[in-house]
Amino acid sequence: MIPAAFEYFTPSTLSEAIALLEEHGDEAKILSGGHSLIPMMRYRLASPEKIVDINGIPDLEYIKEEDGYLKIGGLTREVALEDTPMIREKYPLLYDTAVMIADPQVRNLATIGGNIAHGDAANDHPATMLALGAEVVATGPNGERVIPIDDFFLGLYYTALEPTEIITEIRIPVADGNSSGTYKKMERKVGDYATAAVAVQVTMNGSGPAKVGIGLTNVGPTPIRAKRSEELLVGQPITDELIKEAGKLASEDCAPTADLRGSEEYKRSVVSVLTQRALKTAFERALSS
């Protein structure tokens, strides 16, 4: 399959890239890892006339803790999350998410910024970022702005990003010794989108959680925060009944549609089960850390 013709630009600085986006407006698409965009172009689901390849812009690939945040550069490859020991040790939710994305070759090129900017609820990082309470740093003609993750996903392939903005950084509050999490994904085969997946991040205070973040993948037009489940758990001693109830609430609060991966009823059931499993793992990890 051959994509439609396009003009190709390789800016070497951020400001050059933004100027190109300003000049070409809706005709232009940003190419980072390319693993969402190029498949769409091959199927002619997208036929941008201009491609702005941002891979030549320096200093956008990094993972570091600074000023109370874990900061991840927008061009950071998924494989870097897998290979960075600090992520595995302190942010197991991010590690568990990264290793479930597509396959090793894809993760060598695909970027975290792209995974989020694509605005696809079937991608894995969006729900994880909801659970982590992340912020998206977008850089455009007027400089940087910080978008809370809850305000970022507006609809299918539709985000708060302006056409002239580039995701330059993801910020996640630094994890302390009382917090942990996990990502539980059901997929038919490696590389498939999730039938459903659940991201959980908890921060413990004694035997109960002071904070709970739960994000749901591919069970609605956007990633969904299981708000009632979060509220149910905060400040309560953890019991099996409470976890079960949190799973039930999550299954009620998602909005899956039937497709080849299953019926609506089946997917709600998967959400309930995965929410319970993810909560159990997250609590166990947080209490043992």
Partner: peptide
Amino acid sequence: GKSIKSCTMFAVQ
């Protein structure tokens, strides 16, 4: 040195 899928990259890249 890194394995990639060459169907998901443009030659210009």
